[in-house]
């Protein structure tokens, strides 16, 4: 039986076992969730959120704004008429486009990743030549356990940002996942998982551990597996982290 709500597949290799596992997102919740927005004092008078037009790129005042201008004074001085056909109109459908400095359409561009330090100085800059593809479901480079750590040490070392369940879809994968969960739970451990990517370094072929990228275009995370077992039931949880606490 395929579980509800999963859409990602995970190619996992542990020991001699090698199989594809569905991932199910764990949807974390606030302490309270509100449902509807209503007019103050009127419980059933629901209001809805709408996007409206305010100004376009042709607006002379907005395009003049740079630093510290008194916007109200600019409006008075320019004696500008409001575009009553445009301002306040509902915009229900829009496309995202790219413009150059002359406000001309652009279809060809180069994408750069820029890293700055706290003082705003650029410390690294790299051109993104191709869209990074998801790396968790490749048979030739499966996700593997790279390292095991006591659960308490991993818990104190990393901030875990999001999590997924690894779920079985048949009897064999049930045995496989339950065994991993039981093994980790009994050892009170968590397992760091990643992809071993083949790379040639100094003329030699090496396997370099890489972080998990769940989907094409998504960012990379280190993944940690946590296992819990309750009677015949199990939970094998994938925790994602991108930050160390200490």
């Amino acid at each position: 039986m395929m579980p509800d709500g999963h859409y990602l597949q995970f190619h996992l290799n542990v020991g001699k076992r090698d199989t594809t596992i569905p991932l199910q997102y764990r949807k974390a919740k606030n302490a309270e969730e509100t449902r509807r927005v209503v007019k103050r004092g009127e419980k059933f008078s629901e209001v809805e959120s709408q996007t409206i037009a305010v100004y376009t790129i042709d607006n002379p005042i907005i395009n003049k704004l740079e630093n510290g201008e008194d916007v109200l004074q600019e409006l008075i001085d320019s004696d500008q008429e409001m575009d009553i056909e445009l301002t306040g109109r509902y915009i229900s459908y829009k496309n995202r486009i790219l413009l150059n400095e002359e406000n001309e359409f652009v279809t060809k561009y180069n994408e750069f990743k820029v890293i700055e330090n706290k003082e705003g100085e650029v410390v690294a800059e790299r051109e993104i030549l191709e869209r990074p593809v998801g790396n968790i479901n490749k048979k030739e480079e499966p996700v593997r356990i790279l390292k095991r750590m006591k659960k308490i040490d991993a818990f104190k070392k990393f901030a875990f940002k999001a999590s997924y369940y690894l779920v079985h879809d048949d009897g064999l994968s049930y045995d496989f996942l339950r065994e991993i969960a039981e093994n980790l739970a009994n050892g009170d451990e968590m397992a760091l998982i990643g992809v071993l990517q083949k790379q040639t370094v100094d003329g030699k072929e090496k396997h370099i551990p890489k972080r998990l990228r769940l989907k094409t275009g998504a960012r990379e995370y280190w993944g940690w597996l946590e296992g819990r077992v309750k009677d015949e039931e199990y939970a094998l949880i994938l925790h994602l982290t991108a930050m160390e606490l200490s």
């Binding site: 305010v54 100004y55 445009l86 459908y93 486009i97 413009l99 400095e101 561009y109």
Partner: peptide
């Protein structure tokens, strides 16, 4: 030169 993003509405208006 930096390229900026904008929105295009169905009536061809461009919003920064």
């Amino acid at each position: 030169n930096e390229i900026k993003q904008a929105y295009l509405s169905v009536d061809n208006r461009i919003f920064p």
